[in-house]
Amino acid sequence: MTELVQTLVFGVLVGGVYSLVASGMNLVFGVMKVVNLAQGAMLILSAYLTYSLWKAVDLDPLLLVLVTAPSMYVVGWATYYLFIERARTTDPAMALVTTFGLALITKGIMALLWGNDQHAVTPAYANRSFTLGSLHFPQAQLYACLVAVAILAGLYALLRYTWLGQSVQAAASSSDGARLIGIEVRKVRAAAFALGVAAAGAGGALLSVLYPFTPSSTDHWIGLMLSIIVLGGMGSLPGSVLGAVLIALAESLTAAYIAPDWATAVPYLVIILVLLARPQGLMGIRLREDMSRA
């Protein structure tokens, strides 16, 4: 029983971080219907940035979110204008293939800069835990989850209550309606894309503390993000929080009761099963292009 509760605790803590990691991809999809397959590479890139900064200045890696997120915002902004906008105008499928190319480039650059060896950021509290009765709360996981939830809340508030956030939502739902009130839809899309990458930037800083990483970790994380937004419902931010927690729980249960090796297969299995049985996900609206309004 204790083992089960412990597994659930662990799953929820990890789920918080997963939520943040997936939110960026979901935001970009919601606004411009482009799945950014480079998001996983951006995440790991941010983890490497955190690693180098941590080595250089010896600040708490979780605080480095304040540096990595804005840096990745700039990266995302430049990526939008250099690649995404052009690809988007030809064909949404082409935009997706382009981001796939970008993912490979980023992966290669990371391997050149940091090598293929496993890296990890290990602050003093990395292996400590709080104990409550017979339950353990690993400190790193706990802090990372709290930071993730705080950032998510901030992101949600930004989208919900600021002019930028509202113009993002406006541009996503009615392009002409947004232009008629003076929103420059192109700039707003760039900002939304950059914001999505910045969210991956923040997520990367957190995951660098929780998991060791290599350039090849990209594939695992992109699969994880995809499974979260497919399960939660593509384009739904609350859906991706729910999806993240469920995936994290499924992973930790699989690792605890089946075998740790099979935990990595969970996200992919979820993607295929969800798209077979309930393509709109748990909280998404149906994605049927032929069901558009007449």
Binding site: D219, L226, I272, P279, L287, R288
Partner: peptide, 25 residues
Amino acid sequence: LTGRRTRGIAFVIVSFAFLELTGLL
């Protein structure tokens, strides 16, 4: 079978997931 009810993007995701899943298998 996933293509019965979904279009474009979902298929891309499924194909990617399938590759990773078979590799893990």
